[in-house]
């Protein structure tokens, strides 16, 4: 297939991903309402209890609402990555995954295209959330709304790759809720999304170490700095390495030699 053919294939995967998102209105509302509840209820309740000291990238004291926005952007992308993963498990159960995997292009490209398409969908959700936050007077420097794009692309890909890896290991849709609980909640709470790591150090010596190893922490910090037009190089490095690792493991999971269809058939799916 020509280079244009590769681009057309990506376009096809992207259009399908967006169409599926548009058709699932509940998914859009859930994606928007979930972080808004954290922002407008949780953060409002905790703003008095949690004082945020001046720390990079902030030049002055900030409200708790401002602090948790990058974490909530990461949360949107984390849930979107899990949703994409769920949709891949669903596609596998419904059979439509076969059509994607039979496309005459390298499998790494197809999976990367699927990841990129999911990331675009997450960007739509992130900007819808930022627009609502703006309406509630939670605002950032204008340049931040542009400079977060590359950071969000990278974090979206990385969190999507986590979902992709999960989808290659989950056999049945029914098992998905349990796995999500074991992934989403630890990733979210053991990070700097809701509280700075130094705050966590006041409570425990182990928890901040775990949080430092959590790639979601670095994704949030990358977004946090990018919102102020700054680059957090260590966060960029860790997020990039995590993306490469999760993607490589996903490719192994989706290879024909070790693919999920194999296990499915072995489980009795083969009728003929």
């Amino acid at each position: 297939m020509s280079a244009i053919g590769w681009a057309i294939c990506f376009w096809g995967i992207l259009v399908r991903e967006v169409l599926r998102f548009v058709h699932q209105r509940e998914r859009f509302f859930a994606a928007l309402v979930r972080p808004l509840v954290w922002l407008l209820v949780f953060a409002a309740g905790f703003r008095a209890a949690l004082g945020i000291a001046i720390m990079p990238p902030y030049q002055t004291y900030i409200t708790y609402e401002v602090y948790i926005v990058p974490g909530l952007l990461g949360m949107i992308q984390l849930f979107n990555g899990m949703q994409s993963s769920l949709s891949m498990v669903y596609d596998r159960e419904m059979g439509s995954m076969k059509i994607l995997l039979m496309t005459p292009l390298p499998r790494w490209y197809l999976l990367a295209a699927k990841l990129a398409a999911g990331t675009v969908v997450s960007l739509l959700q992130v900007y819808a959330f930022l627009a609502v936050a703006w309406a509630f007077d939670i605002r950032f420097p204008l340049v931040g709304y542009l400079s977060i794009v590359p950071a969000l692309v990278l974090t979206g890909l990385m969190l999507g790759a986590v979902g992709l890896l999960l989808s290659s290991t989950i056999r049945q849709l029914e098992n998905f809720a349990g796995v999500m609980n074991f992934v989403i909640f630890p990733m979210f709470f053991l990070s700097s999304a809701l509280y700075p790591l130094w705050k966590l150090e006041e409570a425990s010596t182990i928890l901040p170490r775990i949080a430092t190893l959590n790639p979601f922490t670095h994704a949030v910090e990358l977004i946090r700095f990018a919102l102020y037009g700054e680059l957090n190089a260590p966060a960029l490095a860790v997020t990039s390495v995590a993306l490469a690792a999760f993607l490589a493991l996903s490719l192994v999971g989706y290879s024909p030699a070790r693919g999920l269809m194999h296990r499915r058939a072995a489980g009795g799916g083969d009728a003929g």
């Binding site: 053919g5 096809g12 399908r16």
Partner: peptide, 17 residues
């Protein structure tokens, strides 16, 4: 998806648009 959307998706996977 509609019949047309399904077919356009499959066509694009093969580089046809």
């Amino acid at each position: 998806l509609t019949v047309g959307q399904n077919l356009r998706y499959a066509a694009r996977l093969h580089g046809i648009a």
